[in-house]
């Protein structure tokens, strides 16, 4: 055997830089995908509430596709499939502007949106209908009642599951390495193949993933306490 564990060898010079660049890319990918997931999740939730059945079917199809097709396949569809449908100038633009990052963010964000939409929907369902009725009685229309009264309460209730989704989204960004996004897992592989320090390289990656995950969880419990509405 004679394997000498030497964590210092991968935490110096350019290898340390690679880890940090990878971590920054992972965080950026998480942030962009998260914003997209939230926006799309809220849009899907609102669309589903419009009393026109085909729209409801569309959202159901959207949710089922994203929940039942492996995420890696969804990423491939966006990276290999979608650009081939676009006109040539659009393809060139994508290639010139870190297309892999953008398309990975879209794939991850849209997939997470399906879960976000489900979480927000359960949040909305838990708000008594009387709240909506009460807002309408003051003179708010459908959008006002939803926007100012129902959604703010529903989102509060949805925060713990949404933090959970954020955690999953953060971890899922590692799949983006498959299309060459230079995020943390991709950079770790690079460090490993340059140094042959396999265990050390992945130990560093593990520690970094854990640290961020714990950070997200801490944020979750802190916000959970802050958002709880006091009652007598």
């Amino acid at each position: 055997m004679g394997y000498v564990f030497d964590i210092g060898s991968v935490l110096t010079g350019k290898y340390l830089d690679w880890f940090l660049i990878g971590l920054a890319t992972t965080l950026a990918l998480t942030a962009v995908a998260w914003c997209l997931a939230m926006a799309m999740g809220i849009i899907l939730t609102l669309v589903r509430m419009i009393p026109f059945p085909p729209l409801g079917w569309f959202v159901a199809l959207y949710v089922e596709y994203h929940r039942n097709v492996p995420l890696l396949v969804q990423i491939f569809v966006w990276y290999f499939g979608v650009p081939s449908l676009l006109p040539r100038p659009a393809r060139q633009w994508i290639n010139a502007h870190h297309g892999e990052f953008l398309l990975a963010a879209i794939a991850l964000g849209l997939a997470a949106a399906a879960y976000v939409a489900e979480d927000i929907r359960s949040g909305i369902r838990s708000i008594p209908k009387a709240q909506y009725e009460s807002a309408r009685s003051i003179g708010f229309g459908y959008l006002g009642a939803m926007g100012y009264v129902v959604l703010p309460q529903a989102l509060r209730i949805a925060v713990p599951p949404l933090i959970n989704q954020t955690l999953l989204l953060f971890k899922n960004t590692s799949l983006a390495m498959a299309i060459g996004v230079g995020e943390l897992t991709y950079r770790t592989r690079e460090v490993e193949s340059y140094t042959f320090k396999t265990f050390e390289a992945f130990a560093v990656a593990t520690a970094l993933y854990l640290a961020i995950s714990f950070g997200i969880m801490a944020l979750g419990s802190w916000s959970g306490q802050r958002l709880r509405l006091e009652t007598r």
Binding site: A130, Q131, E133, S134, A135, S137, P152, Q153, R156, L229
Partner: peptide
């Protein structure tokens, strides 16, 4: 037309 409900229905947030 103001409406007051039995269960108050204040907005808790």
């Amino acid at each position: 037309v103001g409406f007051v409900f039995q269960a108050y229905n204040l907005f808790p947030h």
